[in-house]
Amino acid sequence: MTTAEAPHLDLPQGLPSFQAPPKGFIGHALRAGWQDFRAAPIFGLLTGAAAMFAGWVLLGLTLWAGHTFWLILAVFGFPLVAPLCALGTYEVSRRIGAGLPTDVGAVFRRLRAEQGRQLPWLSMLLVVALLFWFFLGHMIFALFLGLKPMVNVTTSLDVFLSVDGLMMLALGTGVGGAFALLFFGICVLGLPLLLAREVDYVTAMLASLSYARTWGAPMLGWAVLIAALLFLAMLPALLGLLVVLPWLGHASWHIYAQVASGAR
């Protein structure tokens, strides 16, 4: 494998210079992401299919166990790990911009090379955050509805529409939204930054969070759009994830590429 095939061997050192989000940067990212998806669709389709099948397995297990409330937690928790699921599409877009091969083998080799770098640490943090969200969500449910008679989500809607149920949904939505915004801020530039440059994961997280806080309004718009598109993609039996997840993954790289100097 040559140096050109393994750009992780000679990545630029340290943080790039960040600039303000240019006008229309979200629309540009979506268009460029769609072009990348069409140019190299195989890895993106594999990513979307993996997320879709994982969702089906979770759905089957919760229905089998009779604890369909966990589906609500999964739906609201998925945006926490969606950037991690789409990580390979970042690499595909980076390779397209750098003129490198985009075949599945080359992408997998590049991602495998990350095992000895900083990306796994941030990945583990995202997984821990998702598990903590499930724990916290279950605590909130037990606090408000633990003593309520309930069979499952579809046959117990009256429980959710009670005073305790509405309070539980309000608190859970607020806590889940805060979690999602925090980890969006950490990952929106942090993940592509770790792929593109030689920098430790704490520095990448703080730089990403600082940028998201500085440019709160435009970055919040991107976060809301991601959440809305992912939610819509999950409605038709998760089938929309097959296209929407990789599309957003490619677009996320182009968000980074527009604000970071020397992104490629």
Rank of each mutant, 00 (worst) to 15 (best):
L84K: 00
S123T: 10
V163Q: 09
R109G: 03
V224D: 00
M124L: 12
G172S: 00
P12S: 10
P21R: 01
Y90L: 11
V104N: 06
L241Q: 01
Q118I: 14
F160G: 04
T47K: 02
A39S: 09
F184M: 11
I255G: 01
L191V: 06
F76W: 10
A170W: 12
W70A: 15
Q118C: 10
E114I: 13
P7W: 03
A50G: 13
V244Q: 00
D200S: 00
L15N: 08
R117P: 04
L84A: 04
T2V: 13
A212Y: 03
T203V: 03
S252P: 07
E5H: 13
D200K: 00
C187I: 09
L131C: 06
Q35C: 15
F43W: 05
S162W: 07
G240T: 08
S156L: 07
A6N: 11
L73E: 02
V104A: 04
H8K: 14
I42T: 14
G172Y: 01
L230D: 07
G55Y: 03
P120V: 04
H8D: 15
M168G: 03
L241D: 00
L230S: 04
A237N: 10
F25V: 11
L111G: 09
P101H: 03
T89R: 02
T68V: 08
F69P: 14
L166N: 11
L30H: 00
M124A: 09
G146H: 04
A20S: 02
L206R: 08
G24Q: 04
G14M: 00
T68D: 06
L87S: 11
F144P: 12
M52Y: 11
D103V: 01
M205Y: 05
L122G: 11
A233S: 02
L145Q: 02
R112M: 09
L230W: 07
I255L: 06
G24N: 06
T2E: 14
Q118K: 08
P149C: 04
L181M: 10
T214D: 11
M52I: 09
T214Q: 12
S261N: 08
W247A: 00
M1Y: 11
G44W: 01
A106G: 13
G176F: 15
V243E: 08
W133E: 02
W253R: 02
L230T: 05
A180D: 10
G137V: 03
T173F: 02
Y201L: 08
G88S: 14
C85I: 13
F135H: 07
G66S: 03
S93N: 02
G88N: 12
A129C: 07
G88Y: 13
T2R: 11
L45A: 01
F144L: 09
T102M: 00
W247E: 00
